[in-house]
Simulated assay, not measured.
Amino acid sequence: MFESLFVPTLIVALAEIGDKTQLLALLLAARFRKPWPIISGIVVATLANHFLAGAMGNWVAGLFSPATLSWVLAASFVAVALWTLIPDQLDDDESSSLKRYGPFLTTLFAFFLAEMGDKTQIATVMLAAQYPHFLLVVLGTTLGMLIANVPVVLAGNFAAERLPLNLIRRLAAMAFAALAVYAGYQALVLSGLT
């Protein structure tokens, strides 16, 4: 049961380092200099976005046989592992037009939109399809987002400029690759090929 919480937390925390939403958190912290409304906006936006993603993953899990789902998950985790190696960049326009709404609403809208189709949202879909405790997965992916983004909001440029982003991206990619190997192994077992 706790695996449904801890694995998503770790995976998303690693994957979020250097992600566009982390860059967005840095940008919002620099513009507003009010950390608590920004952090609150991140929490609400991430819970909403990841709840939808987790619900989709939970729904998709019911569409396939366990063996087919494991093969799909293995391929998806490989794709996300490769995607994780590509550094994200943030369009400045993504949050500039929302600034007039204040730090909480700007963060809420900007984070919700920035997470659409992002690798952490896709990972949430896949993790919710893999693990049986849907709400724990959503809580775990949200905690992962907070672990990666709250220090950036609180410390601003100081922490972001000193992190070894290439190493962290490689670690996140390795974590997704490990999940791919595990899902592939499950697929082999479920298919009776081992």
Rank of each mutant, 00 (worst) to 15 (best):
44 V>G: 11
23 L>S: 07
176 F>D: 11
42 I>Y: 00
171 L>V: 14
64 F>E: 03
120 T>K: 01
100 R>P: 03
38 I>F: 02
24 L>H: 11
50 H>V: 12
56 M>A: 14
146 L>T: 06
113 L>Y: 07
26 L>H: 05
99 K>S: 14
108 L>C: 09
87 P>I: 09
129 A>F: 00
103 P>A: 06
23 L>Q: 15
49 N>F: 01
42 I>A: 02
80 V>A: 04
93 D>Q: 10
15 A>G: 13
39 I>G: 04
15 A>T: 13
5 L>G: 07
25 A>F: 12
46 T>M: 00
50 H>I: 02
164 P>Q: 03
102 G>Y: 08
113 L>D: 05
69 L>A: 08
146 L>C: 05
42 I>S: 00
91 D>K: 11
47 L>V: 07
18 G>V: 06
21 T>E: 07
12 V>P: 02
47 L>P: 15
19 D>N: 15
17 I>L: 11
179 L>H: 05
160 A>S: 12
19 D>C: 05
2 F>R: 06
20 K>W: 03
75 A>G: 09
3 E>A: 14
77 F>M: 05
64 F>K: 11
125 V>N: 00
146 L>N: 10
66 P>I: 07
169 R>E: 04
70 S>V: 03
112 F>V: 11
147 I>Y: 00
152 V>D: 01
7 V>M: 10
172 A>E: 03
30 A>Q: 15
143 L>N: 02
79 A>N: 05
34 K>H: 15
16 E>M: 12
2 F>H: 13
131 Y>F: 15
170 R>P: 08
